[in-house]
Amino acid sequence: MNIVEVENLTKIFSASGKSGAVKALDGVTLSVGEGTIFGLLGPNGAGKTTLVKILLGIVRPTSGNAKLLGEDVSHYKIKSRVGYLPENHKFPNFLTGEGVMKYFGELAGMKKSEIENRIDPLLSLVKMKKWKRTKIKSYSKGMMQRLGIAQALINNPDVIFLDEPTDGVDPIGRKEIRDILLKLKNEGKTIFLNSHLLSEIEMVCNSIAILNKGKLIREGTVEEITTTKEIYDFEIAEGSATDILAKFGTAYSLVAKGNAAFSGKFDDVDRLNSFIDSMRGAGVLIKSVVPKKVSLEDMFISVIEDSEGGKNE
């Protein structure tokens, strides 16, 4: 079953005060399957938070459909199975860490005894147990973030929305949070992650989508998105790369990568194959042809630039 299902979702924030109307989401369609860690990427103002807020009933959609756990997002009761860490959350500052957990447990409709049983394990999980009885007023940013994650898990949710969960957390803490996410995934939970920390997303997410200016511009597994279709790396067993470059370099814009390796850019598979045919015709023994992998960051930047470029034309 798909945990999140969004169809042609559009959100226009109506003009208020000086600012005009903003199209925060523009016909977005996507789905998130059960048990995945889904990463939603995009530059600032892309509409990531807006999408999550619509799924949680905090923002009302202008048009389109949004379903969470198989129910329309206007059904508030399903939210007993949901955990949420908002960006820049603000807990009642007169509470202690333990108090925050109780407070949100009660709001989630849990029984007192259930809440009590979950507080300690969860606070240990995020390494905050020793601050349990300290007022959150004196917490650092990273501590608040850890508590925020624990709070999002209080009701043992099936799906967890985390908006920039590692914001303000040190590198060790980030690693710990990644481990927590993987652990939750192994328990069969679905995680919806908003982030612009691409290396992190790359490490934990099975499935990602890129949003820019309210439009979904890419969707797929990390594998799919980071493999470019146009650039291929070649290795040859016999023959010399210099010879090949001299022969075909200009026709196929090849770049040398040592004695027996080079890469080339091909607009489509036909062109790739005719290049291979020519090489074979010239007696070259090919060892491997591999589509080039780029880092998610490089891909992200080029995808965003492409979509911006497309708009300007």
Partner: peptide, 15 residues
């Protein structure tokens, strides 16, 4: 209604 607080309240199973 403060930002960061209302989001959390509305994300709970409460109408």
């Amino acid at each position: 209604l403060e930002k960061g607080n209302i989001d959390l309240l509305l994300s709970k199973p409460i109408s």
